[in-house]
Design a protein around this nucleic acid. Structure first.
Length: 211
DNA sequence: CCATGGATTGTCT
DNA sequence: GACAATCCATGGA
């Protein structure tokens, strides 16, 4: 797949999480894994989490679990949820702020056979079908498993700077025009924890969204 | 297609 | 001790 493999620089992330969330649409999440396998996908859905938000892990200040969310923009925040899944965030803003963008869904691009193997533990069928590919990275936990993103290796990692084996980063893609962007409520909020906030962005006509 | 409930574990109250 | 920014299988329309 002919994609730009230059990581976005730290300046990109040193802005408000809502701006970054909007501008990450169309960008490419890339994992150059330790064995040299390149896996990537186009970002089609994001959510912004700010410290003013009861749903944000940073709402009550730093703890052991969320400490990397308070790093400077351009780092990774990976956490475990429901005992099983991992979720990947790009930290935004200055150090100590506690803001990040959750990557919720990807359109698979590079390394699809390897991603399939990681997700399902068996080789990709000869004809996976569009519905098969659609489900490969259509959720925050799914895409972490597919790309091999782990808390141990990637939580707190720098996602800017030079590419190398094992590097996780985001490169710029085609900008997404405003008339193809949808904004709405986030997923999974319960009991009045900010579910009314419009901090979810998606490429409206993509068939690779999480819902 | 949509709605429901179980899995599973580190973290915070 | 309860919860959590989820996923998947299952059942019914």
């Amino acid at each position: 797949m002919n994609i730009d493999k230059t990581p976005l620089n730290a300046e990109f992330y040193l802005r408000d999480a809502e701006i970054v969330a909007r501008n990450l649409l169309g960008c490419i999440l890339v994992h150059h894994d330790p064995e040299g396998v390149l896996m990537s996908g186009r970002i089609v859905e994001t959510e912004a989490y700010l410290p003013d938000d009861p749903a944000s892990h940073s709402f009550r200040g730093p703890t052991r679990r969320n400490s990397s969310m308070f790093l400077e923009g351009g780092h990774s925040y990976v956490y475990r949820i429901y005992g099983i899944h991992r979720c990947f965030n790009a930290v935004t803003g200055g150090g100590g702020v506690g803001a990040a963008v959750l990557i919720r869904a990807l359109e698979p691009l590079d390394g699809i056979p390897e991603m399939w193997m990681r997700r399902y533990g068996e080789p990709i069928p000869a004809v996976p079908g569009k519905s098969g590919l659609r489900g490969l990275c259509s959720g925050p936990g799914k895409l972490c498993k597919a790309l091999g993103i782990t808390a141990g290796k990637h939580d707190g990692a720098d996602i800017t700077g030079e590419t190398s084996d094992g590097k996780l980063f985001i490169s710029g893609g085609r900008p997404v025009p405003e008339n193809r962007v949808g904004v709405g409520r986030r997923i999974g909020m319960t009991r009045g924890r900010g579910e009314e906030k419009l901090r979810r962005w998606r490429i409206a006509d993509s068939s690779y969204l999480s819902r």
